[in-house]
Amino acid sequence: MSIIEDPKIVEITGRTRVLGILAHPTEHVKAPPGINRIAMMRGRDAVMVPLNVAPADLESFVASLRVLKSFDGAIVTVPHKQAIIRLCDEVSPQALAVGAANVLRRKPDGRLIGDQLDGIGFVEGLGDQDIAVSGRSVYLVGAGGAANAIAFALAEAGITRLTLANRTVEKIETLAAKLKGAYPALDVAIGTADPRGHDLVINGTTLGMNATDPLPLDASLLEQGMTVAEVIMEPEITPLLQAARETGCRIHLGRHMLDHQLQLMANFLGL
């Protein structure tokens, strides 16, 4: 059983440390039960709650966290991963390279520290399912915080070829330039909606969270033998994964990334 599938009731006390998951909207988030379970297992008086904050209110809300003395930190997710960087007092080298943070910790003096765990969580999730990365050719859709983190983690894990695709070409051109600078031996290309010719196909966008979303790529061009992976956790089987399964591809669920991030996130948040 996944750790996020066994939530328990958490008793709140006057000493309870508050953690959050910062998102907009929050209905799709899956981390709080898992983090709360870890807190209980580690004997920590702490609870994670959803923090639904619109982008226009992010700066003022984050400022308030500096003076919330019972607040220890938060997971940061869509659509705030990139915007949160400029609101931190300090960010890790990984977050700086990616241009996005997905965890935020408050120091006792009110300073806010950001880090990036998306990429390592995604790659470790693949490995746990016996999906090889090193030496493989990868097609990645997206240019947001998660996609950037995954691209860097895949490059670090030894992929040989990476094709980037996104509706806004300028964003992936920026990502491609950063990757080429950091990993000059990696074959990085700008692609289209055509995923053919790759071992691993990844949707690193939010397309698929809503029933009315278009597919992130041309699913009619998926090929048997491909592995098709998601970062989306709700719904578990997105339209892309359904199309991939019908084509005969192996599918990889978004929850595997979170499963492998939870312990890392808990450690970062001081649990």
Rank of each mutant, 00 (worst) to 15 (best):
R255M: 14
I12Q: 03
L65N: 06
H28F: 13
V49R: 11
K180I: 11
L104I: 05
I84E: 03
Q82A: 12
A39G: 02
L19R: 05
I120D: 12
D218P: 03
R17L: 06
L222I: 05
A147I: 03
I237R: 14
V29W: 00
A229L: 08
V78A: 06
M40A: 13
T174W: 06
M209T: 08
R196C: 09
P32V: 07
S137V: 03
L222S: 09
G121D: 07
T192R: 12
R245Y: 07
V188A: 08
P50W: 00
I159S: 04
M209E: 04
A31F: 07
G20V: 06
A189Q: 15
G181P: 05
Q129K: 15
Q129I: 09
P239G: 11
P7M: 11
G181S: 13
A185P: 02
E90H: 14
K107G: 10
N36K: 01
D6L: 14
G270R: 05
I202N: 05
G158R: 03
D218C: 08
L126I: 07
F268S: 00
P239Q: 11
L200Q: 05
V78K: 00
F152A: 02
A39M: 08
I159T: 06
P239V: 11
G145Q: 07
A147K: 00
V133M: 07
P32G: 09
L175H: 02
L258D: 01
L51F: 06
F71Y: 08
P33L: 11
V62S: 08
G43K: 04
I251D: 03
Q242V: 07
A189T: 15
P32I: 08
P195R: 09
L140N: 02
V10P: 00
E173Y: 02
V141H: 01
T77R: 00
R250E: 12
G142K: 08
A100W: 11
M233W: 01
L51D: 00
D57Y: 05
R161D: 10
K81T: 10
G158K: 03
S92N: 08
V138I: 12
L104Q: 01
C88E: 04
A211K: 13
T247C: 14
P184H: 13
V103T: 14
A229F: 02
A46G: 00
R44Y: 11
Q263M: 11
F71I: 08
D187F: 06
D199W: 01
L186Y: 08
F152V: 02
A189Y: 05
A63I: 05
A177P: 04
E156A: 15
K69Q: 13
D89S: 11
E230M: 10
M209N: 06
E234C: 09
D115M: 09
T247V: 13
A155S: 09
R86S: 14
V29F: 00
E170N: 12
K8R: 15
T192W: 10
A46R: 01
M40V: 12
I113E: 12
V169D: 10
